[in-house]
Amino acid sequence: MPSIHPLADVQSKNIGKETTVWQFCVILKNAVIGNHCNINCNVLIENDVVIGNHVTVKPGVQIWDGITLGDHVFIGPNATFTNDLTPRSKQYPESFAKTVVKKGASIGANATIIAGNTIGEYALIGAGSVVTTHVAPHHVYYGNPAKHKGYITKEGKLVDLQYKDNEGVLYHFNNNQLIIKE
């Protein structure tokens, strides 16, 4: 059973077991949230949203219609998603752009993810970055606009553009996984 703070406005019945929703959150009725998630205070989650298992959403995040977060995703404080590439007041598109954050990806504090992009598995988006393009699995992006600056392993070890970590260990991709080169 989920743990929902009494000061949260949770309209959805689709919230997984052992998920915690903190105070001042608004979760609309059609949102789907998995098991063992931590939805921190001051988070808004709209209707056409799917959140996987073991996801952490830090304070001040709005997850708009059209956004999907995979399992084990981390969304840092005040990260921003968009879902309409040409917004106008009181003029709504027929459908919102789809944004997908894949399994194990992390998005740093105050990063902005422009609508319609996919953040690949275990990718890392640096704090304050503005993502305007798809990000491949295990890639590290940061800056404004965010640029490819390196790689990251599933375990969180940073690897430079020459596929070396800070200890000089060499890595390579095998079946879309970043692993030590033998």
Results as ranks from 00 to 15, higher is better:
128 G>C: 08
129 S>E: 06
130 V>D: 04
130 V>S: 06
130 V>A: 09
130 V>Q: 01
130 V>W: 00
131 V>S: 04
131 V>Q: 04
131 V>E: 07
131 V>A: 08
131 V>P: 05
132 T>D: 09
133 T>D: 11
133 T>P: 01
134 H>K: 12
135 V>C: 07
135 V>S: 02
136 A>W: 08
136 A>Y: 11
136 A>S: 13
136 A>E: 15
136 A>M: 13
137 P>K: 13
137 P>D: 10
137 P>Q: 13
137 P>T: 08
138 H>G: 00
138 H>N: 15
138 H>L: 11
138 H>K: 05
138 H>S: 11
139 H>T: 14
139 H>W: 10
140 V>C: 12
140 V>K: 06
141 Y>P: 03
141 Y>G: 00
142 Y>W: 09
142 Y>K: 10
143 G>S: 13
144 N>H: 02
145 P>I: 13
145 P>W: 03
146 A>E: 06
146 A>F: 03
146 A>D: 07
147 K>L: 07
147 K>W: 00
147 K>E: 13
148 H>L: 15
149 K>V: 10
149 K>S: 05
149 K>C: 07
150 G>E: 09
150 G>V: 05
151 Y>F: 15
151 Y>C: 07
151 Y>D: 06
152 I>K: 08
152 I>F: 09
152 I>W: 10
152 I>P: 02
152 I>H: 07
153 T>V: 05
153 T>G: 01
155 E>D: 11
155 E>C: 01
156 G>D: 07
156 G>Q: 04
157 K>A: 05
158 L>C: 11
158 L>I: 11
158 L>H: 11
158 L>Y: 09
159 V>H: 02
160 D>I: 03
160 D>H: 01
161 L>C: 02
161 L>R: 02
161 L>T: 05
162 Q>W: 01
162 Q>S: 15
162 Q>E: 14
164 K>A: 13
165 D>V: 03
166 N>W: 01
167 E>W: 01
167 E>N: 14
167 E>K: 13
167 E>L: 12
